[in-house]
């Protein structure tokens, strides 16, 4: 009975492979090492954010405030350096803010028991507002001389591999290590799988939930620094964009169920690759942005529908509040 089942992860892999083969065959210039690197580089920030989201989703929550964590603390780094502070102290301040933000998120969700969707929605708005009102003078925080050298984080390359890809890979390894090899990783899975059981077993569920959101905020902040370094500015308006939806798609599409306790780094990589291949292929085809979105949406929908047909859910196995 088991072996006939194909998981969503495998479906996404099949779709990705098919797309990749299709693009390689029919698109001139797709299957070149330069383009593949460009493909990866274009989605590396998305991938890093996906890892942050994955930690939270595996732990049974969701973090809508990730984009605020991406935009505000790194923006502050640029702003502080612009105002004459040293780069290192600015980075320390930024990470301190990210950690504090994660703590607040975690507290709201674990202790005040506000549903994660709502808590992070509101806290994200709060952080974005804070940045907009008090931290930045203009929404696009520009690079300044004090940042010299820091742009290597986004623009350098090692052995021809652009830095963001290396950073994505490093984050993947770090997160995979955390989730698979450490006690806290095991706890995160346990909490996401069955929070009540984890509690009864004696796992400190609330601190673990707080930890998830702190990790997410810190990784989000890191992604923001990479983003800022690669475009030489921090467009904090990115908070208004629909980037968070792409992040959720990467995670969920990769096969990490929103119900928690399932999936891992592999799923994020898969989701990221699928999105990356699609976007890159369509950019090569010179499709307009709107058309790209349309195609992206339809392919995603097809993948999700395929999953439903292969792994049908019926009234017997349906979960309560299964959104």
């Amino acid at each position: 009975m088991k072996r006939f089942r194909i998981t969503q992860q495998e479906i996404v892999f099949v779709v990705f492979a098919a797309l990749f083969v299709f693009c390689s065959l029919f698109l001139k210039g797709f299957l070149t090492s330069a383009n593949i690197l460009a493909l990866l580089q274009n989605v590396s920030v998305l991938g890093i954010l996906g890892l942050a989201m994955a930690i939270v989703v595996i732990g049974g929550g969701i973090d809508i405030s990730l984009i605020a964590a991406l935009a505000v603390p790194p923006g502050l780094v640029l702003q502080m350096v612009q105002d004459g502070h040293s780069l290192s102290s600015s980075i320390v301040v930024a990470f301190a803010i990210a950690i504090a933000f994660g703590l607040v998120n975690g507290w709201l969700i674990a202790y005040a028991e506000v549903p994660s969707l709502f808590a992070t929605l509101a806290s994200g708005i709060f952080l974005a507002g804070l940045g907009q009102a008090f931290l930045f003078r203009v929404e696009v925080v520009q690079w300044s001389d004090g940042m010299a050298g820091f742009d290597r984080l986004g623009q350098a390359s090692v052995f021809g591999v652009p830095m963001p890809i290396i950073l994505l890979a490093a984050t993947c390894l770090a997160v995979a290590f955390l989730l698979r090899r450490t006690r806290w990783g095991a706890y995160i899975y346990a909490v996401g799988d069955n929070r009540a059981a984890a509690r009864v077993t004696g796992i400190p569920t609330r601190p673990i939930i707080v930890l998830q959101y702190v990790l997410a905020a810190v990784i989000g902040c890191f992604a923001g620094l990479v983003l800022a370094a690669s475009v030489n500015s921090m467009p904090t308006r990115i908070f208004n964009s629909t980037l968070i939806y792409d992040v959720i798609l990467v995670v969920v599409l990769g096969g990490i169920g929103l119900s928690g306790g399932r999936g891992g780094v592999v799923n994020v990589i898969l989701g990221t690759l699928l999105i990356g291949t699609m976007l890159n292929g369509m950019t090569i085809m010179n499709l307009s942005y709107a058309a790209q979105n349309l195609v992206k949406g339809v392919v995603l929908l097809a993948a999700v529908i395929a999953d439903t047909f292969i792994n049908p859910r019926n009234e017997e196995t349906a979960q309560q509040g299964d959104i």
Partner: peptide, 14 residues
């Protein structure tokens, strides 16, 4: 029987 969250997220984009 698709999941509401992911489905409407995708139709939002479409």
């Amino acid at each position: 029987r698709l999941r509401a969250f992911i489905t409407t997220l995708i139709t939002l984009i479409i």
